[in-house]
């Protein structure tokens, strides 16, 4: 039962991922991305990582993707950008990239399935079924991994400051660049 559930969600993930990168309209791409994220959170559930799945839905799909959509709306792309997009991306120009990724894909598949690596037997015999509770994660988080928390906090802070700085200077800059051009 879990297996075919996994298969469905895997299929959804792959299809929506493909649609994301081949969509011409940015908003369509974003929405497909959200679908992928949800499907991935489904897989997390299947793997027993319920907390991660929840986070995925709330933070990843919820917050980050919304931010994304919010920004694309700010750029008032409109019809012009759609035509531009069609011009920017069509299959003939990206044939090189396609071949390259295909080779990479085959190599990885080859390594995964045909290389004589002994990954399967080690894992199948001892696995446990119960879920990992949030309390357990919390203890781990503020136990041995407390350093990790501090680092991610620092990272978030720095991202915050940078984002503000760049977007603030975004206002001033266009004005100055205009009169700079005039001066040149």
């Amino acid at each position: 039962m879990i297996d075919n559930l996994f298969l469905i969600s895997a299929a959804v993930i792959l299809i929506s991922a493909l649609l994301t990168i081949t969509a011409h309209n940015v908003v369509h791409a974003l929405l497909y991305l959200v679908v992928t994220m949800l499907a991935v959170s489904m897989v997390f559930f299947l793997l027993g990582a319920s907390f991660a799945a929840a986070l995925q839905i709330i933070v990843y799909a919820g917050a980050i993707m919304v931010l994304f959509i919010f920004v694309t709306m700010m750029l008032h792309q409109g019809e012009k950008s759609l035509a531009q997009e069609r011009h920017l991306f069509h299959f003939s120009t990206s044939i090189g990239a396609f071949i390259l990724t295909l080779i990479l894909f085959c190599e990885l598949i080859f390594i995964l399935f045909f290389m004589p690596l002994d990954i399967d037997n080690a894992l199948t015999h001892t696995y446990h079924s119960e879920f990992i509770s949030v309390k357990q994660i919390g203890k781990q988080l503020y136990g041995p991994y407390s350093l990790l928390v501090v680092i991610s906090a620092m990272m978030l802070l720095s991202a915050l400051i940078t984002a503000i700085h760049i977007s603030k200077s975004a206002h001033i800059l266009p004005k100055t660049t205009k009169n700079q051009e005039a001066k040149l």
Partner: peptide, 19 residues
């Protein structure tokens, strides 16, 4: 980016040949 990926491809190929 492309040169980056090319390098990965070559690295994998080298690894596969080695194995």
């Amino acid at each position: 980016n492309a040169s980056l990926i090319i390098f990965c491809v070559l690295a994998f190929a080298w690894f596969i040949k080695g194995a």
